[in-house]
Amino acid sequence: MGTDKRVAIVTGAGRGIGEAIARRLAADGLHVVAVDIDPETAARTRDAVVADGGSGEALALDVSDRAAVLAAIDALAERLGRIDAVVNNAMWIRYGALEEMDEGTVDRMLAVGLKAVVWTTQASLPHLRRASGCIVNVSSPAAVRATAGAAIYSAVKGAVSSLTWQMSNELGSQGVRVNAVVPGAVPTEGARALVDDAGYELRRAHTPLGRLGRPEDLAGAVSFLVSEDAAFVNGHLLAVDGGLLVS
Rank of each mutant, 00 (worst) to 15 (best):
I37H: 07
D38E: 08
P39S: 09
A43N: 11
R44L: 05
T45M: 11
A48P: 11
A48L: 15
A51E: 14
D52F: 12
G56C: 06
L61Y: 05
D62V: 03
V63E: 06
S64M: 10
D65I: 04
D65H: 04
D65M: 03
D65G: 01
R66G: 12
A68C: 04
A72D: 06
I73K: 02
L76C: 01
E78R: 09
R79W: 12
L80W: 09
L80D: 05
L80V: 00
A90R: 13
Y95R: 06
G96R: 11
M101V: 13
D107R: 15
D107L: 10
G113N: 11
L114N: 09
L114C: 01
A116Y: 09
V117E: 08
V118Q: 13
V118L: 15
W119K: 02
T120N: 08
T120G: 08
T120L: 14
T121S: 12
Q122R: 12
Q122Y: 12
L125E: 08
L128M: 03
R129C: 09
R130M: 00
S132K: 15
I135W: 09
V136A: 06
V144F: 13
R145H: 12
A146I: 09
T147C: 11
A151M: 10
Y153C: 00
V160P: 04
T164V: 06
E170K: 04
S173A: 13
